[in-house]
Write a protein that binds this DNA or RNA. Structure first.
Lengths: 246, 246
DNA sequence: ATCATATGTTCCAAAATATGGAACAACGGA
DNA sequence: TCCGTTGTTCCATATTTTGGAACATATGAT
């Protein structure tokens, strides 16, 4: 197995629940001789992929990751443009907003904009969600054809429930969820794409369940729809469906 | 040469001025057979370190980097705490704020908080600065002993000018710069540390040169000093020097 | 102090991987 | 059509990685 795959396996051990790792942790969790883990992590330190915390033996991702994440965000005009929009919406409504992107079968947050309300959803950037189990993910899946979605899920064939959810999103122009990935949290999401690069991203607003009534939600949807619509127009995204609020 | 070093060399090619790379770019710039570059980048794609933009052959850093950057930020209570503080200062004064960290001889931004003023410094996260050539870097260097700084710069011995700058920062408790790394941009910075982890970070406010007078700057320094002082007190940072505003 | 336990590092030959050159295929422009 | 690109695949050779054990160092308990 290539050392690159091992390095990735180490990096993948990190999560919201596991913010630091020692050589022994890695050896145990990857079931690898600790000699290996030791050398591997030394190599990763040398390349800046890992760094030690202070002068302890605990490791966290290296600072290169910060730079690369920033480059990722800047590499896409679509993301930059959407960030501005969501940032505005977030301050306007006081709720937390996200920009997300599809990566294989998961969605991951590219940028987050914490809300300002006293009761707000805490940013959970870095946490990956199953695409089909989140509003933001489904808003992106709904932009793909049924065949493309099926190809993505060839291993675990998609359910009829998801199919009908997606076709409803295609009609409505937006996706919603209520306490789906996180208890007490509702979300609305709209996807836009850049025909030039075939990127698709999702603009999403999350808010505590129960403090927003139907009217409030519709206002947010309207604002989200308008912001997304402007971006779609700017980029010439013909597949964009203006959200339809009955 | 280990493939891990090659992977890092590829990632290091990315910068604010180079947001995407092709196989040929990499082969040329790293002076490597393109067969190598092709296989290397394929491996990096497989591990998620790189991803193609849409369905072009241009590559950008992979989405893993986004998650890892988020984990880095959350791995440190000190960073989380300082982020809140700088975020507040940034909205209060309307100027852009940063949290930075020292990585060998460079400082890199961990988090940025764009200002709200019409005339504001655009966030330049991901751009690394020489530690000794930026206010934020010097504020951190000033926390280290002269011997430690000398050890860091053993290859290129430090100038007397830097020495005297650092001792002044130690007396004043803050670092400042005027149009140093970027034309038209001034900065003030204060460093705090966490004795438990030996981390040192810098809280920094940047603003357009000429629109802030001495009084305005002193007000910001005072607010920055108070915020940093509270953090230092919380973490038991005995090395913190309360900025001294004459 | 002494022992026990856990940590991370270094050594070696065997096994697996990366390397560079060239040939190959695919695309777009003149 | 031809030409200059691009990215990919093939192969034997050279290099790196692997796993076991010995070694060193730190932490905690008796």
């Amino acid at each position: 197995m290539s050392i690159l795959q091992n390095a990735q396996a180490v990096l993948k051990l990190y999560s919201a629940d596991c913010l630091e790792l020692t050589v022994t942790d890695v050896a145990r969790r990857l079931d690898m001789p600790k000699a290996n883990a030791s050398r591997l992590m030394k190599a990763m330190r040398d390349t800046g992929m890992l760094s030690t915390i202070g002068d302890t033996m605990r490791h966290r991702p290296g600072t290169v990751m910060l730079d690369l994440a920033a480059i990722f965000r800047r590499s896409s005009r679509l993301i930059s443009r959407a960030s501005e929009a969501v940032s505005t919406l977030s301050t306007q409504f006081g709720h937390t907003g996200y920009i997300s992107i599809l990566d294989r079968q998961e969605v991951t947050a590219v940028a987050d904009f914490p809300g300002t309300n006293a009761l707000r959803v805490v940013s959970n950037i870095g946490r990956r969600l199953s695409a089909h189990q989140s509003a933001t993910g489904r808003s992106i899946l709904a932009r793909m054809s049924d065949d493309e979605v099926a190809a993505l899920y060839e291993e675990q064939p998609l359910t009829g429930s998801l199919r009908s959810q997606l076709s409803q999103i295609r009609r409505n122009g937006f996706a919603a969820s209520s306490q789906e990935s996180t208890a007490g949290v509702d979300a609305i999401a709209v996807a836009v794409g850049d025909p030039a690069t075939h990127e698709i991203i999702s603009l999403c607003i999350v808010y505590p369940h129960g403090i927003v009534d139907d009217d409030g939600r519709n206002q947010m949807l309207k604002a989200l729809a308008r912001a997304a619509g402007e971006i779609a127009a700017d980029f010439g995204d013909s597949a964009f469906v203006a959200p339809n609020l009955e």
